[in-house]
Structure formats: structure tokens, C-alpha cells
Simulated scan of single mutants.
Amino acid sequence: MSAGAATWLVVDAGNTRVKWALADAGAPAGQWRLHGAMAHGMLDTLAGEWQAAGIGPVRVLVANVAGGGVRAAIEGALRICAPQAAVEWFASVPWRAGILNGYANPAQLGCDRFAAAIGARALAPRQDLVIANCGTATTIDAVTADGTFIGGMILPGLRLMSGALARNTAQLPQIDAGTALPPTFAGNTHDAILSGCLAAQAGAIERAIAAHGGAPCIISGGAAPLIAPVLNAPARHVDNIVMLGLHAALLAGEMDETC
């Protein structure tokens, strides 16, 4: 990293992990110098990790859905690594970065879902879109070609769904990026649980696509590599859609400020 280069930091504090990305100020959305992720239980080492990476941004944008304890950990790391940075805690508002928030009460929309919608529109402008973010929870949202976020659905994520079903069966599937996909009609209980949960996740996404006129789908999140292959509809797999949306929101704000 060149000395004196102005940088921006975007942070996606989700229910399980805190993800972050560092970009040159004004760089295109998703073009990052560095990025990383950390489980909540390791957040006491976040400042050390950022210091080791030489992170000292001038602007920071954080989307936090993980509560006050995680916010306090991020604030502590920023006090050490970026004491002079302009820090904003991203929130769902009626309009931002080309997205009109169609929630009856715009502030009630999860800030991660709002950021994901901004990111999806930055990738595919002027299109009807379905955005499936498959993490601890799976959120499936719809955006119109004119940029209106019209709403969506929330269901348990793949791991949460399978864990709830298997809790009393001693058949808890091990679900990670390397998990082999089971056949639709599985021949053992372990695989049958995973097959059923994958079908439920895919079915919800396919239902949303059909309800939105067959709109293109962008899928993201930790479980996306498992869910995308079983979809009976095309889907574009994009890593870190929330952070991409945060980056796009910073860029849009900069353009607004210079107009």
C-alpha cells in the first residue's frame, strides 16, 4: 500500500462473522486492496489484525446486525486503527444510492438487506432483480428496474434449518463449502435432512423469481455455493454482496457531494 494513499473501509457485521474490505478512495465497487473475515469470538484480536495489515482509512462505513457487543468491538478497533476516520453506521433510510426503500417503515428494513440491494443494483442496473443472501438467515428480496426495493422474505439459513430438524436425531449434517450435495431422494437420514433443507432454500428462491416475473437472481452468502447448484433457475453467484453495496453507497455519496 503506497504511503499516504487515502483508503475507505467497509464492514459487514453479520450474525456469525464480521467481514471487512479496504479500498482505495474512489475505487470501483468491489475493487478492494485487502479483505478478511473474523468470527465473533475472535473480535478481541480485530485491532491487531487491522494494525498488522496497515489499515488506517479516512472513511468507514459499517453495517451491523449483530448487536451492541459487536458494535463495541468494532468501535474499539477503530479507535486504535483509525482514530481520525469519518465513521458512519449504515442504516436503512427511505432512499440511498439509487434504491427507494419500499418498506412501510423504511427504518425497519435490515441494514444488511438494504446494502445488498444497493450492491445488486450496482452490478445489474436498470433490471428487475431478486437478491438471495444465504447466511445465518436466508433473505430473498426483490428490486424493480427503476430501483424500488419492494420487499422480500426471511427464512432460517441452511445450517440453522438443518440444525433445528436434526437436533434430536444425532444426524446433524456437516455443512460447509466442501460438503458433497446429496441426491434428491437420499438413502440415509443425514443426507435426507440436507436434501430437504436444500430443496426448501432453493424452492423459496425459485418462488421469489417466479413472483418477480422471472427476474435475474443474484445469490450470495456462505451457503450460496451449496444452494446455487440445486436452483432450477439461473443465478449469478457474487461474494460479499453486502460489502459491495456499502462500497457502492460510499461512491454514490461521493458523487452526490461533488454535484
Score class of each variant (00 low, 15 high):
residue 1 M to Y: 04
residue 5 A to K: 02
residue 5 A to V: 14
residue 13 A to F: 06
residue 14 G to E: 08
residue 17 R to Y: 04
residue 22 L to C: 02
residue 25 A to E: 15
residue 31 Q to W: 01
residue 39 A to R: 14
residue 40 H to Q: 12
residue 43 L to T: 10
residue 47 A to V: 04
residue 49 E to T: 14
residue 52 A to G: 11
residue 53 A to D: 13
residue 54 G to M: 04
residue 55 I to G: 01
residue 58 V to S: 14
residue 59 R to L: 01
residue 60 V to W: 06
residue 61 L to F: 00
residue 66 A to Y: 05
residue 66 A to P: 06
residue 70 V to L: 02
residue 71 R to F: 00
residue 72 A to L: 12
residue 77 A to L: 09
residue 78 L to M: 14
residue 78 L to F: 10
residue 81 C to W: 02
residue 81 C to M: 00
residue 85 A to K: 05
residue 85 A to W: 06
residue 87 V to R: 09
residue 90 F to S: 09
residue 90 F to Q: 10
residue 90 F to G: 01
residue 94 P to A: 05
residue 96 R to I: 00
residue 97 A to Q: 03
residue 97 A to F: 06
residue 106 P to Q: 10
residue 107 A to S: 15
residue 111 C to S: 14
residue 113 R to I: 04
residue 123 L to F: 03
residue 127 Q to C: 14
residue 132 A to I: 12
residue 133 N to Y: 00
residue 133 N to G: 01
residue 134 C to W: 04
residue 140 I to R: 05
residue 141 D to N: 12
residue 143 V to D: 07
residue 147 G to N: 11
residue 148 T to G: 11
residue 150 I to E: 08
residue 153 M to V: 11
residue 154 I to N: 04
residue 159 R to L: 13
residue 162 S to H: 02
residue 164 A to L: 02
residue 173 P to F: 13
residue 173 P to K: 11
residue 176 D to M: 05
residue 177 A to I: 12
residue 178 G to Y: 07
residue 178 G to V: 05
residue 179 T to C: 11
residue 180 A to Q: 15
residue 181 L to R: 09
residue 187 G to I: 00
residue 190 H to T: 15
residue 190 H to N: 13
residue 195 S to L: 08
residue 199 A to K: 13
residue 206 E to A: 14
residue 207 R to A: 15
residue 210 A to D: 14
residue 211 A to W: 00
residue 215 A to K: 09
residue 215 A to H: 11
residue 216 P to S: 12
residue 217 C to Q: 09
residue 219 I to D: 12
residue 222 G to Q: 08
residue 228 A to I: 01
residue 233 A to M: 02
residue 236 R to N: 12
residue 238 V to M: 04
residue 238 V to F: 04
residue 239 D to L: 12
residue 242 V to F: 02
residue 245 G to F: 08
residue 249 A to E: 06
residue 250 L to R: 05
residue 253 G to M: 10
residue 254 E to V: 00
residue 259 C to F: 08
residue 259 C to D: 14
